[in-house]
Design a protein around this nucleic acid. Structure first.
Lengths: 136, 136
DNA sequence: AACAATGTGTAGAAGTTACTGCACATGGGG
DNA sequence: CCCCATGTGCAGTAACTTCTACACATTGTT
């Protein structure tokens, strides 16, 4: 499935956050001013690409994200890895760890998360929930 | 500086790898078939955007990458973090660590790299100096 | 029934990326 | 000097993204 452009991504973010919306509601939640037909133009592209679905309710269409946020994220990350890390997200990760300035505490946290995620002998399998915090 | 497109990135990769080249040489190293004027069109865009410089030698132009590979990588990674991790590459890193399936060995390696890069005082800070990336 | 509000459909313009074709310039070998 | 290979300059096409303008349809209210 083809990559999301900037504008398409802006729309997807709103759908991921709010669920099922009609165009005017997306407009209301848009980070910048956008005219209705311009927005619908983007929605049309997203529909063609299969990233959203829509259903008619009354006279309006409700749009819903079909591609999951995590999938889109992974896809874009994978694309970046293709370009800069021989296609390996792992190599990308190592690169990132190397260039980020991490505190000892960060590193400990990192290790805990890694172990919990690998599902092996984790020391304290508490709620190491980090996920995509969208506390908007 | 504006983001690199797919085609622009393909050209940059070759310049990063080979140094200073003239268009026909870039063509020879191109992963797919591309006609000379098409390539020069991309080079022109890269020149406008400031990502490459060129100098005339004889009757030909030699093109050289001006933006460093690491800078472009970090920039694109930052862009991705803006979209999916509230602008924090650190959050992106944590997310990645969580979703990658890492072996215990990977985790140990990760920790080693992290500590070396951060130059912490928890261990022997031997080869701390990894790289000094400065903004281009 | 007429009207305003809301929402859709369609047409199309502007900018960018990616590409093609062709004419022109320069430098070495006959 | 003429020819030809290499390389540039320039004009223009095609697809895509983003956006605008405007007409038409539906619903609720008066």
């Amino acid at each position: 499935m083809s990559q999301l452009t900037q504008g398409e991504l802006e729309v997807m973010q709103i759908l991921w956050e709010h669920g099922e919306l009609k165009p005017s509601e997306i407009q209301d939640n848009f980070p910048r001013s956008i005219k209705n037909p311009a927005l619908r133009s983007v929605l049309g592209v997203l529909l063609d690409k299969g990233h959203v679905s829509r259903r008619q309710v009354g006279k309006a269409f409700l749009y819903k994200a079909k591609t999951r946020r995590e999938s889109a994220f992974r896809s874009m990350l994978g694309h970046l890895a293709d370009q800069f890390c021989q296609g390996s997200t792992r190599a990308l990760l190592f690169n990132l760890v190397q260039s980020e300035k991490l505190s000892a505490q960060d590193i400990a946290e990192l290790e805990r998360i890694a172990k919990a995620a690998s599902g092996t002998k984790s020391q304290s399998p508490k709620t190491t929930r980090v996920k995509s915090q969208k506390g908007n």
